[in-house]
Structure formats: structure tokens, C-alpha cells
């Protein structure tokens, strides 16, 4: 599988590129009052309204001061994903609406084998398991892979709070 490396806050993460619809350089969204903390706002992408999320808020990363590398990654809808892709590599699809992640920097696309994906080590506070599917081991590096559905819908938030 191919994953895209990226920075959220200062930390490296990755997400599978097969879930990406497009990546925008423009990060100009309309903030929405009263929205939950991780919902940054709405963006008009060629007539489609996209809800822009901040994975940094979910992962408790501090926002990067540097803004010039920020990108908006628009994710595919469930209906745009091939049926078999919903549950692949620990992912559970995305959502019915269009969502996007604002990330602080994007890196290169890396091809990895399935055996490079390791389960998330238990009891490591460093990695919040709710929002991750696995750890990708690339050379000496370990890079957490984002759990898209959980970050989008925040469904397991209560569980996490316990």
C-alpha cells in the first residue's frame, strides 16, 4: 500500500493515499461558530462544501506556528470508495459527507508492505490508539497511521475520556 507522510503539529503521521480525494494549497476556510473544537470550518471547493477538521485537536498536538506549509487534504466519501476498501488495513472507511484534514506539512508518498504495519503498542500514552490504525515501520522510523473514521466522526471520544 502507499501512504502519504505528513506533519501534524511537529509530529510525523501518515495516511493511506487511496483515501485521498485531493490536496489543496489554499487553506482559506470559513470558521463556523459553536462548532466542536476539532471542526475548523467550511470550505467551498469548486461548489462542494467541505468540512475542514483539525486532526491536531484530536491528537492533542500543538498547532505549528509555521503556516506556509499548511495543506488541506480532502478525503473521499464512503460512496467514492470501492466497497472492499472500506475495511482495509484497519481503516473503517470515512463518512457520508466530504471532510478534509488540515495538516502542517505533507511529505513524500511511501510504498510499504503489509508486514511493515505493526499493531499499536499498548499503554503507550505517546500514541492515542483511538485515532490510529497501526504503526508503520520505515527503516528506523516508526510512523503512526491515522484512523480516518474515528478522527472524522469522533465517535469514540467518550470511550477515550474514561
Amino acid at each position: 500500500m502507499k501512504i502519504l507522510r505528513l506533519l501534524i503539529g511537529e509530529k510525523p503521521y501518515a495516511l493511506p493515499i487511496s483515501f485521498i480525494r485531493e490536496i489543496l494549497e489554499e487553506t482559506d476556510y470559513t470558521p463556523v461558530e459553536k462548532a466542536p473544537k476539532d471542526v475548523l470550518g467550511l470550505m467551498n471547493v469548486r461548489g462542494q462544501i467541505v468540512t475542514v477538521l483539525s486532526p491536531a485537536a484530536s491528537l492533542h498536538c500543538s498547532d505549528s506556528k509555521e503556516t506556509s506549509h499548511k495543506r488541506i487534504i480532502i478525503l473521499k466519501r464512503n460512496s467514492d470508495l470501492p466497497e472492499q476498501q472500506h475495511f482495509q488495513d484497519g481503516q473503517e472507511g470515512t463518512a457520508e459527507d466530504l471532510y478534509a484534514f488540515q495538516v502542517d506539512k505533507i511529505g513524500e508518498v511511501v510504498e510499504i508492505n503489509e508486514d511493515q504495519l505493526k499493531p499499536i503498542p499498548g499503554n503507550t500514552p505517546e500514541f492515542d490508539a483511538t485515532f490510529l490504525t497501526a504503526i508503520a515501520r520505515i527503516g528506523d522510523e516508526v510512523i503512526p497511521v491515522l484512523h480516518l473514521k474515528n478522527i472524522i466522526l469522533q465517535e469514540k471520544q467518550e470511550e477515550r475520556a474514561i
Binding site: 463556523v32 459553536k34 462548532a35 466542536p36 471542526v39 467550511l42 462544501i49 468540512t51 477538521l53 463518512a95 457520508e96 459527507d97 466530504l98 471532510y99 472524522i152 466522526l153 469522533q154
Partner: peptide, 12 residues
């Protein structure tokens, strides 16, 4: 344009 699930929950 309909709202996404996350924003529907806002309620206003």
C-alpha cells in the same frame, strides 16, 4: 447545501 454530520450536531 446540507451540512455534514459533525455540523448538524451543532444545532444552530
Amino acid at each position: 447545501k446540507p451540512l455534514s454530520e459533525r455540523l448538524k450536531q451543532v444545532g444552530v
